[in-house]
Amino acid sequence: MGKDGEVDFSIIGLENEIEQIQSNIDDLENGKGGSIAIIAEQFAGKTTLINKVCSMNKNRVEMISLSSVVKDEKKLQEIEEQKQIKIIDNCHFLYRHKIGGFDIIERFLKTVTSPENKQYITTWNIHSWNFLENTHEISKYFPVQIKLQGLTQEQARQLILSEYEEGEIQFIEDPTENKEKMINFVIDNTIFLNKEIGIPHLKINYRQIKSKLSRKKIILTPEENIFENIYSISKGNPGISKAIWEQSLVYPQIKPGDIKEPCQDMELDNDESFILSILVSMQNASRSDIIEIAGDEIDIERALQVLSKKNIISSEREHYTIKPEILKCATNFLRRSRLV
């Protein structure tokens, strides 16, 4: 609940985690408990959660939010020294996926376990966390680990609609001819002998088949249909849900058919997949960081160009990040390739 009794929709679905962290902060002040790691994938609400915790404990905590790879430890020492509890957001920026890229995180982990030192509340990208678990057994340094679960379909609906007045958005039924088909005829472009050729083929719409086979034969309203479609793509990730909504909304109207399945069959070579895995783990990375990580053996310019051309990543001022709507299928692809 907000200050004036209104529901704070920005933290919807995070109430239990906030309560758990708050109880741990109380324990930490009493000299009990240990450092906390908040672990989640990109767009899952780690920063929202940590900002809320920070605002609730302004006098007790100090916070630093990392936005790029930390190359100089002084950045970590910038925060005030008076307060007992430190919050560090985006701790996956404390290492680089390269030889010699672990020195800062190793020293940081030593600091975390140092008895006379402060207590830490940290946030981590889940793929970086899993990687560091394999390399440094990182879970041993953080006795309390909170893994953020996704929102339910209803919570995602509340979160999205909280930005609009009641009745502001018009949910419209799809015209019959525009309804999604179970099998679509599509043409995929591919490069063959240095020429771009379109290969026509049939593509199965699994989401549509699943909905046809579903035992629930209840007729859904357009609104329910829209949020079901959003949920089936985002799996409850709030950032992804919002991104899909924003892309599909033709203000003030939205139709179920506007929610398009963003994932084509992902076909990437080894180098492109590796770069993508780095971006999925780091959440965003500069060109120079990617070059440093990938080394000489990968043609980075080509790989980044392919990933951009396939609408998998976006770039802004030489910083690359994965597109929210693609995150789930990219992660599945990387999981199949065992890169995350």
């Binding site: 010699g100 890229g101 672990f102 394999n134 390399t135």
Partner: peptide, 21 residues
């Protein structure tokens, strides 16, 4: 240390609890 880091940062490596380095 360097050899371990070369292994864990390789784009071909596979690590898990059952597949340690």
């Amino acid at each position: 240390k360097l050899l371990k880091e070369a292994v864990v940062t390789s784009r071909f490596v596979y690590m898990s609890e059952k597949h340690p380095i």
